[in-house]
Write a protein that binds this DNA or RNA. Structure first.
Length: 476
DNA sequence: ATGTCC
């Protein structure tokens, strides 16, 4: 396939065949080789064929093969004539990342790392099929799905101030009556659970500050201990995706829409079924924010226990929480006109700049934090959204490092002892319920996050603020 | 990602 380089880190495949728009790839000479041999490219071009797509189908530097849409893909659609695609959101609806700050410095906690790791591992339900001690009735679960963070405040899992530090304040428009009983049944035992695969909880040390003013404004500094978590809506979101794919699939034909594979389902936005999907998706998104909030509650408890201090005294405020599997109604200028679009971000993080109407409070003054986790050894980046992302990528950037080895390849090449030794050399403590998952998630199975950040920063889609490295890793 | 295919 012919990529045309249009700037140092931007590549275009011009529209051809059934494509309605071009495909735009944010990448680099080092990364583009991974795309060319991956099914992700085919998927990126397929998204460009969908009705009502605006400007171009976009691939991020961490693009790789997913179901229907590529992971690391962005597609924006006109409400009039456009489509919604459950595969453009992903099975793990509102999979996302949260960072919690502390006022602890590394030197203060370095002798307590093992105790902290053990305490966290005991308190955090992790692994495939993990359930929580906090289970709720169907009715109460539905209230959580409707209210998001407001429900978490009401139940004592959150304090009022947490709300302003979360994308969309932890609540999208939702209607739990659009969610199947089966999906709710799966969700009611999953409040405050980490899950498996690439989901994780980490205690990190801030090792570098790139933007002192912004770091100050956000309360970040070198040597600071911060907590990262990556999880989503668990079985609940997965069930909703499955349900709506099954509901939409047999009805696609009447619009002249054709499947290219089992999950390449899309449906006119204005149809009732699409509206119901979006309200179910909102319910799962709210559930995911509540899930990360209950986990935050556990993390605050664990730190309080180990350091014998109330979590507020430990400065355990949320820095920010981003959704990287989601579809949102947002406004963009298209051909000189302000248009309302449905933006699918699948494995892509919102990157809104200062002054954006959707940002509030201090983030309106600074732009939003963009949280880009790397692998369990090399650490993660905190960036800030920029105006250029609004003009070029519908306010979006990548979502993380992306795999370089498939799960199967990783398990074949890497033993659990290999992973342990590699982390031990760096002084990183690993806790896991599943040694196979640890091998699948080995640092060597991932690209360097530096490679993913490079095109983003050089194209000015987001700007560097800080970098952190893991001390404690908890995996499913 | 996911009670890894009711």
């Amino acid at each position: 396939m012919e990529f045309k380089r249009v700037s140092p880190y931007k590549f275009v495949v011009e529209k051809h065949g059934n494509m309605r728009v071009d495909a735009l790839l944010i990448s680099s000479d080092k990364l583009i080789q991974y795309v060319e041999k991956d099914k992700a490219l085919e998927q990126l071009l397929w998204v460009a064929t969908l009705p009502g797509i605006v400007k171009y189908s976009i691939g991020m530097p961490d693009i790789h093969q997913g179901y229907a849409f590529p992971i690391g893909g962005v597609g924006a659609f006109f409400y009039d004539g456009g489509v919604v695609s459950p595969g453009g959101v992903g099975f793990d609806i509102n999979c996302g990342v949260r960072v919690i700050k502390t006022n602890l410095k590394y030197d203060y906690i370095k002798d307590s790392l093992e105790e902290l790791g053990k305490t966290l591992f005991k308190m955090i339900p992790a692994g495939l099929g993990s359930t929580s001690d906090y289970t709720f009735s169907i009715e109460e679960s539905k209230r959580a799905m409707k209210l998001g963070l407001e429900w978490a405040v009401e139940k004592g899992f959150a304090k009022e101030e947490d709300i302003e530090n979360i994308e969309d304040n932890g609540r999208l428009e939702a209607d739990p009556d659009c969610v199947s009983r089966h999906a709710i049944e799966r969700g009611r035992e999953e409040f405050g659970t980490l899950g498996a695969g690439n989901h994780f909880l980490e205690v990190d040390k801030v090792v570098e500050i790139y933007d002192k003013d912004l770091a100050n404004a956000w309360g970040l500094y070198e040597g600071q201990i911060v907590v990262w978590m990556h999880t989503g809506s668990r079985g609940l979101g997965h069930q909703i995706a499955t349900d709506y794919l099954d509901l939409m699939r047999p009805k696609m034909e009447k619009f002249g829409f054709k499947l290219v594979d089992r999950d390449s389902v899309y449906f006119p936005i204005q149809e009732d079924l699409s509206q119901r999907y979006l309200l179910a998706m909102g319910s799962a998104a709210n559930f995911a924010w509540v899930n990360r909030q209950v986990l935050t509650y556990f993390v605050r408890k664990a730190f309080s226990k180990v350091f014998g201090m109330d979590y507020e005294k430990l400065g355990m405020e949320i820095l920010y929480d981003v959704a990287h599997n989601i579809a949102k109604q947002e406004q963009y200028e298209v051909n000189g006109k302000l248009e309302t679009l449905l933006v699918h971000r699948k494995g892509a993080t919102r990157s809104f700049p200062k002054g954006h109407p959707k940002l509030k409070g201090k983030f309106k003054e600074t732009g939003q934090p963009v949280l880009l986790p790397g692998d369990m050894k090399r650490g993660s980046y905190i960036l800030v959204g920029s105006e250029k992302s609004i003009k070029e990528t519908f306010g979006s950037v990548a979502h993380g490092a992306g795999r370089v080895l498939s799960r199967h390849q990783a398990v074949k090449q890497i033993t659990f002892e290999d992973v342990q030794k590699e982390l031990q050399r760096e002084g990183i403590l690993l806790y896991t319920n599943d040694k196979v998952v640890a091998r699948e998630e080995a640092p060597l199975a991932y690209k360097s996050i530096d490679l993913v950040v490079e095109p983003i920063v050089n194209e000015g889609l987001a700007n560097l603020v800080a970098r952190s490295k893991p001390l404690i890793v908890i995996k499913g």
